[in-house]
Design a binder for these strands. Structure first.
Lengths: 337, 337
DNA sequence: TTGTAGGCGTTATCAC
DNA sequence: GTGATAACGCCTACAA
């Protein structure tokens, strides 16, 4: 069934059918009514390929998810997907390894699928600096801040990672911890750099001297990596009383390592995470963490990319508020001091 | 850049260009070489819309994911997605609530996006029985067994849920447990029914009388639901020594509830799950579970749907092997008996 | 082996 | 307000 069939059935021409279907003016109410009835009756839907061919667009919005097995991104993805139901866009998702270059991949996918916009979940600014210039469609960095990047087609929606980290470490300080280790991140990930800065800011604000500070052990955002980082930490620094993990998955990996080493959380070591993934609430002990506002980040990202695509709006950079979620993995050791 | 430009550039006609690009025979080696060089030089890629319009296909393979926040499906999805990289197919994912009717949704999406095949993650046979008849494209039930369904365009790749559950409960029996509660599932979910049957089979095989058996408390596959089921169980049946949860997320929710009620796993109550999601390895205690072979299920599903689409193969139903993963959440209480 | 041309289902630009 | 018609880029008989 095509608009031709519909034309035959209603007695109008394809031009009028098309005008009705696209809500164009210059159609009589009568024609509109008759045609819409026929559309309903036949469950008619326009052929996307033909439409896209004519309009020279694909209707595809691409989401590139970097870093696998990431519950935060999985839940972000669900929210994002929900935003595109019943729109004219088709959301296509690509997963890729945390180590790969998302911008190179994006460029290839631009050729391949001709998307109208790209949402990046994860990724690091250096890759954008080097290769984003050739991408001309609107893009949004989701959870990463792109304010310092010189691209006017690249927006961002993120949590204030530095402030969030600061808040996490402040909380540990308020609970009497002074030697606080940092786990996670690499020197090329901007989120890591910001969260590390928050950790340092807190130290400075509380007047803790560098030699009294806990160490920073890097690693990617995974259970496994958190586990290994904590194992190393336990061997190398026995004076640490608390750990700030850059992601909940790392925090959980770390707690797992602590337990395997016959220590307890929070009695022996306190742990705070970042992200607010669901498992944290059901973990044992329940994970204290900085909760990102996933729904809001997802919604704003989708709104922004649609606006950029449809109205040609310039790139913007938004910060979404976070929330300190106090649960059980941090011990108040003020009494011990 | 279109094949016309390429024709002009190489001196060949669009027909020859098209034949080269589609690997058709009847093209001279020389033409093929010259044209391919031009293609490389220009990074030329065929316009998907035009191709699909002409061929009357969309190139889309749909994945419908039912049941949110499901780590098993998230990881399944990653594997599935990997199967379609560098193929002519575009994978489109739709998430929907566990309560909604996936077949109705699929039918709507068939109109909307004209997919060439559908992968269903989750779902229940009753919905298929009622509404699948109108879907004519090849589909695969992933993790659900569709062997009893009378559709020759509906394949399935799944774990032997009944045997897996049987194996889990046997393991508890072997460790001396006799009063074993079952948590999770609804009467309309086939996976639930099969896993429940495995639980009953084990009881029968071990000669445990009905009145000595633990209760079954239903619920959907989520942390939250596992938590609530366990809370109820703790109130209603204090003689239970072990719990078989129909999914790892429920098992974790259950353990969380047990801990919140000042009991311990596995000392006071043993828990075994089903699925083998990653967090189980980092949970505290580490979760004993029936591990599904996610990679293999995903790969076979993708292979099957592609084969059905391209060769018109008839539907098949495959069972993928599972694996009992013994970790820490089950206590051996033979000594206590 | 290669070229030509019609048509896939839409949209948009004309006339009327 | 409406109808005819030329694209959009590709594929594929059919002709040469």
């Amino acid at each position: 069934m095509t608009i031709k069939d519909l034309a035959r059935e209603t007695g109008y021409s394809v031009g009028t059918i098309s005008r009705v279907l696209n809500n164009h003016p210059n159609v009589s109410d009568k024609a509109r009514k008759i045609i819409m009835e026929a559309v309903e009756r036949n469950d008619f839907i326009l052929n996307t390929s033909a439409k896209m061919l004519k309009q020279q667009q694909s209707g595809i919005i691409l989401t590139i998810v970097k870093g696998n097995s990431n519950e935060l991104f999985a839940s972000m993805l669900e929210h994002i997907q929900a935003c595109f139901i019943n729109t004219k866009y088709t959301l296509v998702t690509e997963f890729m390894d945390e180590e790969d270059n998302e911008v190179l991949r994006a460029r290839q996918l631009c050729q391949d699928k001709k998307p109208m916009g790209i949402l990046f979940l994860g990724g690091n600014n250096q890759n954008f600096l080097e290769g984003f210039g050739k991408i001309t469609i609107p893009c949004v960095l989701v959870t990463n801040n792109g304010a310092d990047l010189p691209f006017k087609n690249l927006s961002s929606v993120s949590t204030d990672d530095c402030l969030g980290a600061r808040c996490a470490v402040d909380y540990l300080m308020e609970n009497g911890h002074r030697r606080i280790a940092l786990i996670g991140g690499t020197s090329v990930s901007d989120i890591s750099i910001l969260r590390r800065k928050g950790w340092e800011d807190a130290y400075n604000a509380w007047g803790i001297k560098p030699w009294e500070r806990g160490p920073h052990i890097g690693g990617r955002y995974s259970y496994e990596s958190g586990y290994r980082a904590m194992e190393r930490l336990l061997k190398e620094d026995t004076e640490v009383t608390a750990v700030f993990a850059m992601a909940d998955v790392m925090a959980i990996g770390a707690i797992s390592a602590i337990c395997d080493n016959h220590l307890r959380v929070p009695e022996d070591i306190s742990v705070i995470g970042f992200d607010g993934i669901r498992i944290g609430e059901y973990y044992h002990p329940k994970l204290t963490t900085i909760e990102q506002n996933v729904a809001q980040i997802a919604n704003r990202s989708c709104e922004m990319i649609i606006e950029c695509i449809e109205k040609g709006t310039e790139a913007r950079h938004e910060l979404i508020s976070f929330h300190l979620k106090c649960r059980q993995s941090v011990k108040n050791c003020l009494a011990d001091l």
